[in-house]
Each structure stands twice: as structure tokens, then as C-alpha cells.
Design a protein around this nucleic acid. Structure first.
Lengths: 225, 225, 225, 225
DNA sequence: CATGAATGAGTCTTCATTCAT
DNA sequence: CATGAATGAAGACTCATTCAT
């Protein structure tokens, strides 16, 4: 009895602890990579530096991650999940209207970008043009993000008992929106372009976005009326 | 007299020819770098490969360019000049109206991006996040491009005897527009995302853009009143 | 209790062995560099050659030493320590008199130079004029060596109840002595100038040295009077 | 007659001019090399830099000198000739006595070293340990210089109707003297060790030297008297 | 599992030297 | 003779990755 630890599928206490420690280490390494990739750049960061910051050996890094590229890919995945999760929460908090959508857009610039500059840096700068695999990931994530936004827009439109002027319109709108906010993030977060305070331009950006969206919505009331 | 060396400050014939050949070589190396950076990526391209493609020695590359980074920076400069030159010509060809502006936007996606995918690739992908110096250059070029577009918009607005809702509005609009067309170039040129043909979406994109611009133009009360 | 890991701050047996092996490797590389620098010259020796002779990879050399210059600096340090240690032992073996000092000088030429021609070569030839850093080291070591010798001379003088003619005299004497033995080492060890056998000249050199020293000792009036 | 320029072995005016220009260029290049070798170090100086400073092409450097090493060797030759010429003049100016010799030694430190720091630098630092050929030259020059000094000492001794204690003694003395003044030159000229002003130590150095010399001179008068 | 020493292929970069013009 | 563009061999150094302990 003392020897056996067969608690029906669950792990022994020590095994549980080890499991926890393992996950902890995984995260520590990933955070170290995130910090350094954002601070020094992907290529300028060596595995040894990551290991040092995470207080593990270089070998340990390779236990948790296939290789250096894998670290970047995992960070991108994480960011993708994180951003979509954030988007989901925002959608719950706001009405499914263009006004609600505007609030989310505003929130992205005012809160998200400011709170997670490292994640922004890695996704919008350090993960660009590194390798075929990473680029693939980037593309997938952009496609998914675009798709999410398109769905939201279609939903909003339908609730307005309106619709977009064409089938591709919502996708185009989504791509444009992603482009707008990506560029703003680069300008005002990555480049720290403080010539103009970010708060001064959020409103105008949201206006521009809404104007663009509206111009691709088929005139609504007329049809119904 | 005809026989005499009346070069008056100019170079001899052979010196002229050598000068031409030198410039030719410079361009050959730069074109080789462009091709390979776009095809394989900046880091994945070695100086030796560039030298091979340009049919010169590695030393020759360093005769014309300070180092590998310098090749990238020169390509970026060249692209910046090229794009702004293209924009200037388009502005001459089109009316200084929002419709004219739309034609240019359309032309960018339909002609420019399609004709120079390598330049697009290098500027929008390979030059991202490579080093402080390169990033600086990128920023400068984006700022200049944004500034150009802002000036055009302000000019168009003034001819409409209208104006933007605020001082920062034209700048915000310019940044948004750059973001939109950058993202589209990446989506449809770099990623070759052929799920949707680019021609199908140009119109919608232009509509979105115009809608956005109009929403930041102060209502032209005079005309209405 | 005996079985328990009572290492009390010390390392495990295997860790100890690995530590020893590491130090061994360090020394092997350093010895290889010493041999090659002395035989072929610093610039004419490549890291690869050093690695080959030490039977390690080039990377291993960089694991133990920052760069090629570091190898040279470490060799100089080692030599400096070695020479001063040797001097210390000689001082213990000999009386603190000018005769004792003469024995040491003799011993330097007869034993030290003959036993360690490589070290002599590196310190008196290969480390000259290589870089600012190395030159700095050389200077420091010469200064320290000169200082040691000056102290010895002052000590000897005081025991003779005599003193030097001026405050700077002992330093000057030390510098002269270092110069004399450095040049002799170069002439007869490095250049292998066998026109005259070294043994034939040791006595004269020591006489010269003593004569020089005595001429800067203030005349011991007390004894005479 | 008009065609021929056979002025019996002499050259035509233009040929003479060209000859002069050629020698001028040779010297200009050599001076440029001297300046840069002393300032930046032999290895840290490139042929291109020398050509630039001399305002000639790299090819021209190779017209006047076999290769880079040749530049250094020519500089050493020149210095050797220069130093021995200087020594000759000093010998003429001073009496052939130990006092006269002292004056020369003093003059070396006070005038020569101060006036030609570049030459000192190249001979005592930059030409050390560069290659077999250069080292050979260095050795030859030291041997010649030592020989000169030995001859002077023997001459002085004979005029004193004295002689050295052994046949090798004058050579040993010469080697010691060269060592002393070489080291002082390094300490006080190359290293700019201004902790002690050079003027303060010249006298002591000369005393040391004379003391050393005297201790190897066979007691003179006693024998004769 | 963790460690970290060892590997070694890969790259950039330099620069003495040459030679066609 | 002078030029300076071109060469290309050589070498220092990096760093992702592996594996014995």
C-alpha cells in the first residue's frame, strides 16, 4: 500500500508537484523569451540569454521547446489566443452595434497596446520575415483574426437588419481594420512616436473606421421602409 | 583644337565608360540582393550568394556596400524614392479630388503591387525588425509617406472648400490609409492569398477608404445652407 | 549519516572530476596557444590551429577564452605571476645582499630563460605592439616587475645601512636592470645568437649590473670615517 | 640631334624632373607609413590608408615597395642609418672619453627620443614580432648598433691606456647599454609614463651606465704604474 | 529530468595584392 | 607610370543544438 500510488488516474502528490513545476518552468522560459525578443530582437537574442533570464540551463530550454523558432511560434500562438480571448471579452462587455465595436477599437489602442507592448512588438515586428514556418503562423493568425472581425461585423449588420454591399465586403472591411490598428500600434507603441499623443488620435481613428464600415453597408432603412 | 583634350571638367571617354560600368555593377549587385532577399529572406541570404548571382566576388560587394545591412538600407531608400516618385506621377495623372485619389489607391493595388512584388516583400517584410538602423530607416520612410498622403488629402479638402474636423485628422487618415494598403499588399501579394482574387476587393477597399476619409471631413455647411 | 549527501558546500565527486577536467582543458588550450604563439607568432597563428593542437573544437577555445587577444593576455598574466613567484623564491633562497641579488640575476639568465624560452618569447616579443589592451597589460607588468626590483634594492641598501643617492635612483636602477636582462634574453634566447655562449657573458653582465647599482648608492661615509 | 638626348650619362631635363618626383613620392609614401604605423600600429594600418595619406593610389605604393612588409623594413633600415648617423655626429662633437660618452647617452634621451617618437615607436614596438624577415632585420640592426657601441667603448678604453677585463666584456657592456636605453625609451617615450619627469632620471641613468662600464674596465693605472 | 560543456558548420568581413586600362 | 576596381583567400567569431553525466 505504501508503495503503490494508484489513485485511479490521478497522480501522486509528488508527481503533481513535479507537473506543476514543469508547467511553471515552461512559462518562465516563454516569458524570458518574450522579454528578450521584444527588447533585443529575435536574432539578437541567444538561447543562452533566455536560459539565463529564466534561470535554467540551455538544455532545459530544449526540453520544453523544439528549437528557437518554436519559442517564437509558441509566443505567437499564445498571443493569438490572448488577443482573441480579449476580443471575446470585449464583445461580451459591449453591445453588438457599431458603437460597441467602436468602444472595442478604442479599448485596443488605449488599453491593450499600452498594457502589452512586448506582445505587440513580437507579433508586429519580431515575428515578421523570420522563416517560412513563422510566416505561415503569422498568416494563419491574421486570417483567423480577420475572420473573427468579419463575423462580428456580419453579426452587427444583421442585427441592424442591414447587410454588406457584397459578400467579400465584410472580409475587406476586416482586413482594412486590422491594417489600420496594426499600423497605429507600430507607430505609437513600437516607435514611441510621441509627437502626437495617442489619446488625441483614438477618436479620429475610430471615426475613420466607422466611416469606412458604413460606406460598405448597403443602405438599410430604405429597403425596409 | 578638335584633337585637343577639351574635356572642360568632364571625364575622358574611357573614364566615362568605366564610370558607367561601375554604376552598372552597383546596380547589378543591388538587384541580386533584392531578388535573393525577397526570395529567401534577408537572414537566409549570404553575401556569397549575392556575389554569385551578380557574378562578382564577395570583395566586390564590399567595395560597393559597407556591409550586408547597407544593402538592405539602400534597397529601402531606393524603394522609398521609387514609391514616392510613382505617387507623384499618379497625382499628376489624376484630378486633385477624392475620385482621383481613389484611382491612385486602386492603381497601387492593381499595378504597383503586382509589378513589384520583390520591392513590396523587402519593404513590408524583410526589412522589419532586423536592426536599429534598418528600423530607423523604415520609420523615416513611413513618416515621409504618411506626410505625403496627408498633404495630398489636405490639398484635396481645401479644393473642396472643406476641411478636416481637426488638425490631427488628416494625419490620422494618412496613417490609416497606409495601414490599409500595407495590410492588403501583405495579404494579397506576399501571402498570395488567392482564395479571393485581388480584383474583387479593390473596389470595396477604395470605398472603405473614401468612407473613412469623408467621415473626418467637416460637414460642408456652406454648400448645404 | 555516512550515507547522506554531507557535502557541506563542496561539490559531488563527479562534479569535482568535471571541474578538474574543465581546468585541464583550459590549461591545454592555453599551452597550445603558448606553443604556437612562440613558434609561429601571434598573428600567424589561427584559432583553428590552436584548437587542433589542443585537440578541441574552435568553439571550445571560445568557451574558455573571450577571443584571441584574451589568450595572449592570459598568457601574459600567467607569465607575470610565474616570474614574480620565481623571483620571490629566489629572494628566499639568497641573502638580502648585493651578492645574493647577483646570484638571482645569474640564475635568471642561466636557468629561467633557458627553461622557459616560449614564455620569454611571448612576453618579450609576441605581446609587443599587438593592441591597446595588450600593451596596457605589458606596461602594467613591467611597472610591477620594476617596482618589485626597486623594493628589493631599497631593502638591500637599508641592510647595508646605506641608501641611494636620490629618491628616484632605486627606480631608475630597477628600470635599467629590467632593460639589461630583457635585452640579453632577446639576444641570447630568442635570437639564439650563439656567436658567444651565454655562460661566457653571465659574469660580465652581473658585474656590469652591480657596478651600476653601486654607483647610485650614496658613499657610506660612516664606515670610511 | 633634336631627337637624341644623349648628354653623356646625364638625363634630360624632364627625365630629371621625373626622377626627382619619383624620389619625392617614395619618401611621401614612406613618411605616411611611418606616421600611421606609429599612430595606429602596423597591423591596424592598411595599404589604402597609407596611399590616402600619401595622396597616391594603392597601386603606386606597390610600385615603390614590394609589399607592406617591405615598407616596415625600409623604415627600419632608414631608422638604423639615421641612428648610426646621429651617433657618428655625436661622437665627433664629444671627446672620446667616458664623459663624452655620457653626454651622448644623455643626448639620446633628452633630444633624440623626444624629437623622433614615431621612429622610436616603430623600431621598439611596431617592428617587434611581425615576421621572420622583419625580425631578422631587427636583429641585424641591434647587432650593428651593439657593435658600434662596443667599438666606441674599446676605443675609449684604449685611449685611457686601459682595457676591458675580458674580450667579451665590451660586447656585454654594449648589449647592456642598448637594453637600458631601449627600456627607458619605451617607458618614457612610448608609454608616456609621466609619473616621473624624464629629466629627473637622465642623470641617474647615466651614472648607472658609467658605473657598469667602469666595473668591467680592468684597473688601469695600477698595472702601468 | 537537468545540466552545461562541447561541437562545428556557417558567415561576415578584411585587406594585401594584382592587373587591365 | 598611375590608377583603383576587383579579387578571393583567410580568419575570427557565433550560436543553435546535442548528449554524456
Amino acid at each position: 500500500m505504501a508503495k503503490a500510488n494508484d489513485r485511479g488516474g490521478t497522480l501522486s502528490r509528488s508527481a503533481l508537484r513535479r507537473q506543476r513545476e514543469k508547467e511553471q518552468r515552461y512559462k518562465t522560459v516563454l516569458r524570458a523569451a518574450e522579454t528578450l525578443f521584444a527588447r533585443k530582437g529575435y536574432h539578437q537574442t541567444s538561447i543562452e540569454e533566455i536560459a539565463d533570464l529564466a534561470e535554467v540551463s540551455t538544455g532545459a530550454v530544449y526540453f520544453y521547446f523544439k528549437n528557437k523558432e518554436d519559442l517564437l511560434i509558441k509566443l505567437m500562438h499564445e498571443f493569438g489566443f490572448f488577443l482573441r480571448e480579449w476580443l471575446g471579452k470585449e464583445l461580451e462587455k459591449n453591445d453588438p452595434t457599431l458603437e460597441g465595436f467602436s468602444h472595442i477599437a478604442e479599448s485596443f489602442l488605449r488599453d491593450f497596446c499600452v498594457s502589452y507592448p512586448e506582445k505587440i512588438t513580437i507579433f508586429f515586428r519580431e515575428s515578421v520575415g523570420q522563416s517560412r514556418e513563422v510566416e505561415e503562423q503569422r498568416k494563419d493568425m491574421f486570417v483567423r483574426l480577420t475572420s473573427d472581425i468579419r463575423d462580428v461585423l456580419v453579426d452587427i449588420a444583421s442585427r441592424l437588419s442591414g447587410r454588406f454591399v457584397s459578400d467579400v465586403a465584410p472580409e475587406v472591411v476586416a482586413v482594412c481594420i486590422v491594417g489600420i490598428y496594426e499600423r497605429l500600434a507600430c507607430h505609437y507603441v513600437l516607435w514611441q512616436d510621441r509627437a502626437v499623443d495617442i489619446t488625441d488620435i483614438v477618436d479620429e481613428t475610430v471615426s475613420f473606421t466607422l466611416g469606412g464600415v458604413r460606406s460598405l453597408l448597403a443602405p438599410e432603412k430604405k429597403k425596409k421602409g
